[in-house]
Structures are given as structure tokens and as C-alpha cells.
């Protein structure tokens, strides 16, 4: 059996989430990776990869041509994977549609070649399913699989033609928010603010100093994002990023179901909240009941 993994490059490196998907794919046998655009050296150096299928152009990974290309090459593979990134979630179900198979998204555990575990109901239940499809199409929750090494491999590279442009869909532009902090999905420490942080400036004056000391990523609850305190890509939760850092510090956020779905697999959870009845205290390893406007400057000083 051979698996194919759609990988993504960021700043010349293979994204950690892609390396986690490769680790998941290695359960099934040989692993080939599919790379669109630049980054072939980084892809070839990945540990545990047999072959790099490289499509030199096509950097935008639009769903229509990307899925069509993968579907064309799918019959050589038993499993097709990607991380459950925005790109993976966009492209892989379309691949499954073209192949007429039922995809499995956000897989957290692989129990066999055809048996997988995934969370449902915002992580309130785990379902184990067995797939009868001839090709398994899976997106992988990267926080549940240790990434393969970025170096040490020397996979063969096969260059393939650019898929024909699908004229029904056209890339216009991308607007990335710039940040020097680690990415949320890979950060060892995350400090997240909720509605209790009260405004966007307080994210900078109260959360950022602590984040600086801990080399932490900054996250936010949906309530904080909706209130305009933080940009959407900072959202942690069922509808935002799913994270599992070593340390997650929740500041001024109540701990709604949809937020917990995104962070309750963190190793250690700290809650700082003025309301002793906030549901976040039920999942926190360490809780501090207090006013974040006093606690956060103190915490920054103590670190």
C-alpha cells in the first residue's frame, strides 16, 4: 500500500502540519508527497518519504485544478492525505467527490488501514469508523501526530505537468496577517484572550508581554474575534484552529463548548478568570480567580 500526502510550504519550509500528515501516512506503507510550487529541496529532504511528485508552477492550490490533478493520479494510491489545514479541508473533500468516496476529516487516530477515529459534536464524542471505500481520503488533525523530521531524507523527485487551468475559478489575491510569533498550531505555549480582555489594545498591553517571555503564540476566543479584539485567524475553537500545546493559558474567556473543542487536548491548561464559576475552570489544571488587568502585569513580571 502507498499513501499520497498533499504538502504545503511556508517560507521555504514544509509546514509542520504537513509533516504530521506524513507521519500519519506512514502507518499505511510507502509515502509519496505532492508539492505544488516552490520548495522541492525541502520536500526531498523530508524524512520517511519515498518520492516527491512536483508540479513546479501552480502556487495557489486552488481547489478545482488541485483536486482534479490529485484525482487523476489517485488510482496508484490506497490512501490520500493532507493535514486538516484550510487548504486540506478545501481540496481533499473535492478529491473524494471526484473519486466517489466518502472522505474522513480531522482524523485523530489510525487504528488500521481502514479504521480511523475522529471527533464529532465539537469533540464531545469520538467515533471509530471503518471505511469500505477503495481509496481512503483523509485529513489529519496535526496536533495528534508527531511530525516527521524535516531533514535526513533524500526522496526522488518526479516533475509533473501543470494541470490545465480551470477557468471557472481564478485566484485574485491573498492578504496575510504578519506576525513574528510562532504559528498557533505549532506553538509550545499559547496564551488566549476572551471577551474579558475588553479591547484589541489590551491584547497588546496585557497578553503580548507574557507571550514575549514565553515565546508563545497568541490566540483568541470566538467572542473576542467577533467583538473585533483580534483577527479571525487567531481564533481557537471548533470553527477556528485546533491546538494542543504543552501550555495553554486562557485569559478572560469563559470556556464555551466551541472553544474547548479547539484546545482541550493541551497538556497543561491554565485559566485566569474573575468568575469562579466560569466553565473553563472545569478543564483547567491550574485556575487563578482574579482580575486579569491585575494578574497579567504581575505574571509578566514573575516570568
Amino acid at each position: 500500500m502507498t499513501a499520497l500526502v498533499l504538502i504545503e510550504i511556508e517560507q521555504g519550509q514544509v509546514r509542520q502540519a504537513s509533516r504530521s500528515a506524513i507521519a500519519a501516512a506512514s502507518h499505511f506503507g510507502d509515502v509519496d508527497v505532492l508539492l505544488f510550487g516552490e520548495g522541492v529541496d525541502a520536500a526531498s529532504a523530508l524524512s520517511g518519504v519515498r518520492k516527491v511528485l512536483h508540479v513546479p508552477a501552480a502556487p495557489h492550490l486552488l481547489a478545482e485544478p488541485t483536486a482534479a490533478f490529485i484525482a487523476q493520479h489517485a488510482e496508484a494510491y490506497s490512501h490520500i492525505l493532507s493535514p486538516a489545514s484550510a487548504t486540506g479541508k478545501n481540496v481533499l473533500p473535492r478529491v473524494a467527490g471526484l473519486l466517489d468516496v466518502q472522505p474522513l476529516t480531522d482524523v485523530i487516530e489510525i487504528k488500521g488501514d481502514d479504521t480511523f477515529v475522529r471527533p464529532i459534536y465539537a469533540g464531545n464524542a469520538l467515533v471509530t469508523v471503518q471505511s469500505a471505500d477503495r481509496i481512503k481520503v483523509l485529513t489529519i488533525r496535526s496536533s495528534n501526530f508527531d511530525p516527521v523530521d524535516a531533514t535526513g531524507g533524500s526522496a526522488a523527485v518526479e516533475v509533473l505537468d501543470l494541470p490545465a487551468e480551470d477557468e471557472k475559478s481564478r485566484f485574485v489575491r491573498v492578504e496575510l496577517s504578519n506576525s513574528d510569533r510562532p504559528e498557533l498550531e505549532v506553538a509550545r505555549v499559547i496564551i488566549s484572550g476572551g471577551k474579558g480582555v475588553k479591547d484589541a489594545r489590551n491584547f497588546e498591553t496585557l497578553l503580548a508581554p507574557v507571550a514575549d517571555k514565553l515565546d508563545a503564540a497568541i490566540g483568541a476566543s470566538r467572542a473576542a474575534v467577533d467583538a473585533g479584539f483580534a483577527p479571525n485567524e487567531m481564533q481557537v475553537g471548533q470553527t477556528g484552529k485546533i491546538v494542543a500545546p504543552e501550555l495553554y493559558i486562557a485569559v478572560g474567556l469563559s470556556g464555551a463548548l466551541q472553544h474547548l473543542a479547539g484546545m482541550k487536548d493541551s497538556r497543561t491548561i491554565v485559566a485566569i478568570n474573575i468568575d469562579p464559576d466560569a466553565p473553563i475552570f472545569k478543564v483547567a489544571d491550574y485556575g487563578l480567580v482574579g482580575d486579569l488587568f491585575e494578574v497579567m502585569p504581575e505574571l509578566a513580571k514573575a516570568l
Binding site: G123, Q130, A284
Partner: peptide, 17 residues
């Protein structure tokens, strides 16, 4: 897909204040 089982996620141990 055949559902093999549905289970509760592992509960977190109660923390301290």
C-alpha cells in the same frame, strides 16, 4: 462507513485553584 463505536473523550482530571 461503518460506525464501530462512539465513546466519550478521555476526561481531564480536575485541577486546582
Amino acid at each position: 462507513l461503518k460506525v464501530v463505536s462512539v465513546s466519550e473523550p478521555p476526561a481531564r482530571e480536575a485541577g486546582v485553584i
